[in-house]
Simulated assay, not measured.
Amino acid sequence: MGKVKSDICQQNNLLCPSDHCTLDPTLHKCPKKCHCFYQPKNRRTVVNCTGVGLTLLLQYVPEGENLTLLFEGNNIESFEQREYFNRSYTISLSNNQIHTISSNAIESIGNNAILDLSGNKMYELPRDFQSFNLCITKLGKIQISCDCDDECWNNNCSALGNLWCIVYIPLRTVYFKEKCSKVYPYLKYDVFISFDDNDTEIRIWVIKTLASYLQDFGYRIFIPCRNEKFGDVREEALIDTINICKKYMIILCDKYHTEQTVWTTAEWKYI
Rank of each mutant, 00 (worst) to 15 (best):
S18T: 09
V47W: 00
L160V: 08
C180N: 15
T258Q: 15
N75V: 05
I271Y: 10
I91A: 09
C148Y: 11
E77F: 00
S102C: 11
I142T: 06
K182R: 05
E267R: 07
I8W: 05
L57N: 04
E65A: 14
S6Q: 13
P31E: 01
I244D: 10
I204D: 12
C9W: 01
G53N: 02
L15R: 13
Y60G: 11
L210K: 09
W205N: 13
I250Y: 05
L54N: 06
L23W: 04
D232T: 06
L58M: 07
W153G: 15
L23Q: 12
V167E: 10
E267V: 08
R44Q: 12
V183F: 11
T68H: 04
M1E: 10
N95S: 12
P40S: 03
C152G: 12
Q130K: 09
K182S: 06
Y248D: 14
C146N: 14
A266M: 05
S102L: 09
G51A: 00
S212E: 08
L56R: 15
E201K: 01
D216E: 13
C245I: 01
P17N: 06
E228M: 03
C157I: 08
D116F: 00
E259Q: 13
N104E: 08
S78K: 13
N155M: 04
Y84V: 10
C21T: 14
L67P: 11
A237C: 07
C225I: 09
K247H: 15
I91G: 13
R87L: 04
K246R: 12
C49S: 07
I207T: 11
N227S: 15
V174R: 10
Q260K: 11
L56W: 11
I251F: 03
P224A: 01
K269E: 14
S145R: 05
R172P: 10
L58Q: 06
P62G: 01
S194L: 00
L139K: 05
P224C: 00
L15Q: 14
K121I: 12
N112L: 05
C9L: 03
C36W: 01
